[in-house]
């Protein structure tokens, strides 16, 4: 699941994930992503932007981590937020990994491999 308010970024990340063999669903903010999860979507991994309208990425991570049924979802922030304190906040909330924009497709693949959702 690619969650980003920028349609261009969703397109780029969607392309990268498809090229790595994933099926991709998209959401333009955290609230819509939660709605998709509530309607039964169960992604293996969610790539989550931080700054989005309606519900931001950190709120999304907190919301997902509150629900036992969504514990299997791996959460990776993909964001321009690059302050150390922000990274620590996201990890403390339950994000597994963190990619700071800008990134290369290899960086996404590397991180997915680190998380064990993609073979090296």
């Amino acid at each position: 699941m690619v969650i980003d308010d920028s349609s261009a970024m969703r397109l780029i990340l969607g392309r990268i994930m498809r090229s790595l063999g994933f099926d991709v669903v998209e959401a333009p903010n955290g609230a819509e992503a939660i709605a998709r999860l509530q309607s039964g979507a169960m992604p293996e991994i969610a790539l989550v932007d931080w700054n989005m309208p309606v519900m931001d990425g950190l709120a999304f991570v907190n919301a997902v981590r509150r629900e036992e049924k969504w514990r299997q979802i791996t959460l990776m922030m993909v964001t321009t937020e690059s302050e150390q304190s922000q990274i620590v906040r996201a990890l403390a909330a339950g994000a597994h990994e963190y990619v700071i924009k800008p990134f290369t497709p290899d960086a996404i693949a590397d991180k997915l491999a680190l998380l064990g959702v993609l073979a090296y």
Partner: peptide, 20 residues
Amino acid sequence: SQLEVNRGLPVAMLVRHFER
């Protein structure tokens, strides 16, 4: 650079062993 630390480095190690 940001691009370089995105590659291969677990984020936990980034916050533990790097400073801005």
